[in-house]
Amino acid sequence: MLNYVLRKLAYMPFILIGVIAITFTLFFLVTSPEALARQRLGPKASQNQVYEWQETEGYIVWTEAGQTKRKANAEKDEPEPLVEGQDFERVGKIMLFGRYIQEIVTFNYGLDRRDRSVARVLFDGMWASLALTLPAFLIAELLGVFFGLFAAMYRQTRLDHVLVISAIVVMSVNSIALYMFGQKFLAANWNYFPVSGYAEGFGAARYLLLPILLYVFISYGEHLRFNRIVMLDEVNQDYVRTARAKGVNENSVLFKHVLRNTLIPLITRWVVAIPGLYLGALVLESFFAIPGLGYLTVDAISNSDVNVVRATVVLGAISFMLANLLSDVLYAVVDPRVKLS
């Protein structure tokens, strides 16, 4: 297994470089250093400022003639315009990409467009996202397993039908419509919850309860159907029949035999969901004004905040790769038949 893990870990930097290369290419297809400078400095910034900003950010380098001209300009009210190719050269995309990678390797993520440390921004946002998504995920999964087991045990009964139909109904509802409905009626009209907000520490609980309930409600249908199918596959296996024939009680059949054997698909699902937990739930965060990472990422993309985009891409890619590796390892742990080689 160690070999397998080491091999997978060795692949990771290459996959990461690939992901970053794609992001880098897409990013500079839709924008340019000049546009980034204008966006940062405002449309009325002087052309000199725009060049200096690009030089500071490493997008251009002065030539010797350019250095001389800049020195001469420093004495003048009306500077001579700087000319590309003559006074400065644009740094090649490959060089830029190399520096991009170097900064990632040295954990130098720089500042965001508001001059805050990107690492700090991500760290703060991650906790807010986790405060929302972690309890929501756990409750939703717990309920999913519970209802799935129940529906499987009582398949083709009225109870199973009620559960399945309710799951289909919930899955048919548009999640945004449900968030809007929940916020408008449960919070604004009937005052059972705050409309929105967030607080530090345990104070956050009162603001998070409604979004968590809505998340659980939205997830209920999908979880129930998935878990029911997984459980049904197992409930009909020979070993279950054998266990029952031997007189093993139903608790043991369900929890010791059926549940254990359904763990592989469940683990896949749980582990793959982990990166999504701290990367946030964009729509919920936006509706309930929760300062998490979901909104931050979209905000960074739409405002060409290159450092934040880069950091979230790296964070997302690494966590997805680690989650996949973890799920492989856990397969082997829960199912002795699986050999990692």
């Binding site: 839709v30 924008t31 340019s32 000049e34 546009a35 980034l36 204008r38 966006q39 993309i301 739409s302 405002n303 060409s304």
Partner: peptide, 13 residues
């Protein structure tokens, strides 16, 4: 329709 960054780039060019 495009993002503001892309718009600025196209406009400047």
């Amino acid at each position: 329709p495009m993002t503001f960054a892309e718009f600025l780039k196209r406009q400047n060019e």
